[in-house]
Design a binder for these strands. Structure first.
Length: 738
DNA sequence: AAAAAAT
């Protein structure tokens, strides 16, 4: 880890270059047009049409709505603001974290970890301690009383007081058809048989969970997001959370979360899930999809109670004597690709589970498994997990999926991409999980390539396919800039960029902090391609005096979480990250995403820039482009055009050249490009050239696989045959030129 | 020649 402190004097030319990105763009001479600041771009409503695929495109499925929901029931709609996203949840959720670590000191600490492999810097309650607290509740006194004495849910504490100490009373859980009994804690916790009734409030917990999420986002744009639902007997979508009866607890937590209106994906997914249908949804994180499944699933669990799982847990408890409750039988399982995403979902689940008897848990690798086991043993009704660690837990006999009637695969494409398919199949098919048709299964994926289709075929029963237009990524609430920067100039250029912070002069008066010290309201996410590069760049920025931190896969889990926390909280408003942070993470207030290194894969690009401009906010994405990035030229151009962004002329020429040079070349990655979310938008949006542009990847002979894009959706998508096809990893060229 | 994820 050498600190290459580049001597960057912030030369005048550089500054000018940044302040006028157009002239900086390049080499090619720049595009010579005005730079439209993000806050102005959006005013042009006429540009809005961009991302709509035609809702009219039908896929051959009759949609015969069932009227399951009485629309009359208080369909009070509110206007304007919707906070219904999982932003901030970490802020809120981890409010109870220990005292903030000193930026600098802290950094020193984990910096050691990365470089040398020495691993012992004491990090106070970072990372694990944090979600230790989360549940301090149930079985006993909170573990980390100092930080979060009542960390757990009030109700749990309550029941702990009432029962744990006083020898559990009851047994009467009848709802699921069981006479309860015995004195396992399980039973104690369900001393009130009715899971649909809220438990006692707990101010402290309430504050911890809900105080942070107050983004007040103007949501108007969301009404434009196209959603298409196909499948037999698709229930009608809702317009208000009140249009479907989710019960007292859910409605209370919706209110506490300040969700006023459902997002598009929620409008559709909630009634589908509530009517017990399987679901395959193409939607991005940031579209509100976490709540879209958590709300109805938990609502259903509250209504139905624990059912057989209670008995199972009891038996288990008896078998294990006083060490009972060894094995937990979650009623619901959510699988996610990355640890951070799992945590994020878990944090959201805690909110939705507030004042309920449902106890959410999260397990993932890189953290002390013993601690996670102990957490599980306090009860686990809803489990959020990364696949590897869950398999581990199952093999250790800590988790039984016998009663897991709700299964959610989040970011399914990403999970497959990361090679989790064996683990996923192990979990879903080769264990004790109820079969499809019995359990209810929901899959979420940004793309819908063949691999996902097969998974859907195998895991889902008579499902509804939901396609939600992309919210953040390539839509117009993100201003995308591509700038030609040679490798050697990247650092100084970055500094200039950070200093300029692209705060348009028109709004300078509203900016309270100096641009070079972006406050919590303007976070900057800098992506690099390698872990080494992340370390090096962070060191560089650090020496240049920026409050920054970094995240990548070689850092300890604790450091990753801490870094994320520092970033989210605004203490380190600059985060240098590898691909680990590209997907799924929902961090509010990311105003600027900088692709210090462009990825080789356009989907990765889309995911990255999607970290900004979230939930209706405006964002800026700046990408450094040079010779090394020729492989992404064409795709990048497509994206820019599609999102109605300015296209540097040099990029255009390059794309043209490149296309000629490599017309026979295949595309990278299995399905990264094939029909990304953008495809399904775009193809039906009328850009006929789009699919053909994308070349031999998966278009050939495969119309049917293109989701609902290329017109072939109806065909072999639902049928179990017809997969044969050209999904070969045909010659690809990646970032390294492989 | 990367990254991610169970250890």
């Amino acid at each position: 880890m050498s600190h290459v402190v580049v001597d960057n004097p912030h030369g005048l030319d550089q500054q000018l270059a940044v302040l006028d990105l157009n002239s900086a763009d390049g080499q090619g001479g720049g595009t010579g047009r005005r730079y439209i600041p993000p806050h102005l771009r959006n005013k042009d409503a006429s540009k809005n049409a961009g991302n709509a695929y035609s809702a009219g495109r039908q896929c051959g499925y009759s949609v015969a709505p069932i009227n399951l929901y009485s629309p009359g029931w208080d369909s009070g709609r509110s206007n304007g603001f919707v906070n219904g996203y999982h932003d901030n949840r970490t802020n809120g959720g981890f409010g109870g974290r220990g005292p903030p670590r000193n930026d600098r000191g802290g950094r020193g600490a984990y910096r050691g970890n990365r470089g040398g492999g020495s691993f012992n810097q004491p990090l106070q309650n970072a990372g694990f301690g944090s979600y230790d607290n989360k549940d301090g509740s149930w079985g006993g006194p909170p573990r980390d009383a100092a930080y979060n004495s009542f960390g757990g849910r009030s109700d749990r504490n309550k029941s702990a007081f009432f029962n744990d100490r006083g020898a559990g009373s009851r047994g009467r859980y009848e709802r699921g058809g069981f006479a309860g009994g015995g004195n396992t804690r399980w039973v104690e916790d369900s001393r009130d048989d009715d899971w649909s009734k809220p438990t006692a409030p707990n101010e402290r917990l309430e504050h911890e969970l809900f105080s942070g999420s107050n983004t007040g986002i103007n949501f108007e744009k969301y009404d434009d997001i196209p959603v298409e639902a196909t499948g037999s007997n698709c229930p009608p979508h809702i317009e208000s959370f009140h249009d479907v009866d989710m019960g007292e607890i859910i409605m209370g937590n919706i209110t506490l979360s300040r969700y006023t209106r459902p997002t598009p994906v929620q409008k559709h997914a909630i009634p589908i899930i509530k009517s017990k249908r399987d679901l395959m949804a193409c939607a991005q994180t940031g579209s509100g999809k976490t709540a879209a499944f958590l709300l109805p699933v938990l609502s259903q669990i509250y209504t139905d109670g624990p059912g057989d799982a209670l008995q199972a847990a009891k038996n288990n408890g008896q078998e294990n004597g006083r060490y009972g409750r060894r094995k937990q039988y979650p009623l619901s399982l959510i699988l996610a690709p990355t640890r951070e995403l799992a945590l994020q979902i878990y944090d959201e689940a805690r909110k939705v589970a507030y004042r309920s008897r449902v106890r959410p848990c999260v397990v993932y690798g890189g953290a002390d498994i013993g601690q996670q086991i102990r957490d599980l043993e306090r009860g686990c009704h809803l489990l959020v997990a990364t696949p590897g660690r869950l398999v581990d837990m199952m093999e250790r006999g800590k988790i039984g999926l016998d009663y897991c009637n709700y299964l959610v695969l989040d970011e399914a494409d990403r999970m497959l991409d990361m090679g989790f398919e064996p683990q996923i199949r192990r979990i879903v098919e080769q264990d004790t999980m109820p079969p499809k048709g019995i359990r209810q299964t929901m899959m979420f994926s940004a793309t819908f390539p063949k691999e996902i289709q097969i998974l859907a075929r195998d895991f889902l029963e008579d499902y509804i396919f939901l396609a939600v237009g992309r919210v953040g990524s390539t839509s117009e609430n993100i201003t995308q800039k591509v700038v030609w920067v040679e490798e050697t100039d990247k650092r100084s250029f970055l500094l200039d960029l950070l200093n300029a912070t692209v705060i348009p002069s028109e709004v300078q008066e509203n900016v309270t902090e100096a641009p070079e010290k972006p406050g919590k309201d303007s976070l900057t996410l800098v992506f690099v391609e390698t872990k080494k590069g992340a370390d090096a760049l962070e060191d560089f920025l650090y020496h240049e005096g920026y409050a920054c931190t970094s995240i990548h896969g070689d850092r300890s889990q604790r450091d990753r979480e801490e870094a994320l926390h520092q970033f989210r909280s605004g203490r380190c408003p600059i985060l240098v990250a590898t691909a680990v942070a590209a997907r799924g993470l929902d961090i509010s207030n990311v105003k600027h995403v900088i692709n210090f290194d462009l990825p080789s894969d356009i989907e990765e690009y889309v995911h990255r820039i999607g970290r900004t401009g979230r939930v209706g906010n405006l964002g800026l994405a700046t990408s450094f482009f040079n010779d090394k990035n020729s492989n992404i030229t064409k795709d990048l151009l497509d994206i820019l055009v599609e999102a109605k962004q300015e296209v540097p002329s040099w990029l255009e020429s390059l794309a043209y050249e490149h296309q000629h040079k490599s017309s026979t070349r295949g595309r990278s990655k299995r399905f990264s490009g094939g029909f990304g979310a953008r495809d399904y938008r775009q193809t039906s949006g009328g850009s006929g050239s789009f699919s053909s542009n994308r070349g031999g990847r998966n278009t050939g002979g495969h119309g049917g696989n293109r989701g609902f894009g290329g017109g072939g959706f109806g065909g072999n998508f639902y049928s179990n045959d017809g997969y044969g096809g050209n999904y070969s990893h045909s010659g690809s060229v990646d970032w390294w030129g492989n």
